[in-house]
Amino acid sequence: MAKGRGSARSGVAAALVTLLCLLVHSENASAATYTIGWMFNVVSWPEGKSFSAGDVLVFNYDPTSHNVVAVDSGGYTGCTASSGAQVYQTGNDQITLTKGMNYFICSFAGHCENGMKIAVNAV
């Protein structure tokens, strides 16, 4: 059966849709990875850095002495983790940033109060 002009146009349209899908899914291909030596007095670590949603923070630490807890702004300010907070404890945690403010603390007693916390704004 002979193909008409409509078939060629639909093939081009399908190729454009496929290309658009690939571009949308490749958004994270340019995500940056930042490694943090998770220790006391890291509160200023994000200063001077630019972060985007999809970037990955890698927290390196001794899991027998520390952890990483994703908290909200109140948990960050008050150095408290809610019962539903995500706790990471491998010593090599890889956390993908979401758009907006991302807050992390160490919930071991006294650690957050001694600067073991960071707030990262991802655009």
Rank of each mutant, 00 (worst) to 15 (best):
L22C: 02
K99W: 01
E113A: 12
E47R: 06
A109W: 15
T18Y: 05
A31Q: 06
M1G: 13
S107G: 09
G78F: 13
V42T: 10
V69K: 03
H111Y: 06
R9K: 13
F51E: 04
K49P: 00
F59M: 05
W45Y: 06
S73E: 15
Q86V: 14
A29F: 13
A15L: 02
S44M: 10
S82T: 11
Y76T: 01
G74S: 05
C106L: 07
S52L: 08
V12I: 15
Q94F: 00
C79E: 03
L19V: 13
V68K: 04
T90C: 02
S26N: 12
F104L: 01
C79D: 04
S82H: 07
A70Q: 14
A122V: 02
T64W: 10
A85H: 08
I118C: 02
S10F: 11
A32W: 00
G91F: 07
D55R: 01
G48Y: 11
L20Y: 12
V123R: 14
S50C: 09
C106G: 07
I36F: 04
T98M: 09
T64N: 13
S44I: 05
Q86K: 15
S83D: 05
G91T: 09
D62L: 00
L97T: 02
H66T: 11
G4R: 07
G115N: 10
V120F: 00
S30A: 09
D93P: 08
F40N: 12
Y61N: 08
F104G: 01
L20R: 14
A122N: 03
N60T: 13
P63K: 11
V123A: 15
A122T: 01
S7K: 13
V123N: 15
G91N: 06
V42P: 03
A15P: 00
T35E: 10
V42C: 06
V123D: 15
G110Q: 07
S10W: 11
A119V: 01
Y76S: 02
L16Y: 10
P63M: 05
L20I: 14
G11D: 13
T96R: 15
V69D: 01
E113D: 09
M101Y: 12
A29P: 06
A53L: 07
A2N: 14
E47N: 05
G75Y: 01
L57N: 03
N67W: 01
C79T: 03
M1T: 09
S7A: 14
A85Y: 07
N28Q: 15
Q89P: 00
M116Q: 10
H111K: 08
T77S: 11
N28G: 15
W38C: 03
F108V: 12
A85N: 09
T64R: 14
G11T: 12
R9M: 10
A81E: 09
T98A: 09
M116G: 03
C112Q: 07
N92P: 04
A122K: 04
Q94I: 01
G115K: 12
A81Y: 08
H111A: 08
I95Q: 00
D93L: 07
A81T: 07
V43W: 12
L97V: 02
G75D: 01
T33D: 11
Y34D: 02
R9E: 07
T80F: 07
N41M: 12
S30K: 07
S26Q: 13
A85E: 08
V120P: 01
A70T: 10
S44T: 11
K3T: 08
G48W: 11
V123T: 15
H111D: 05
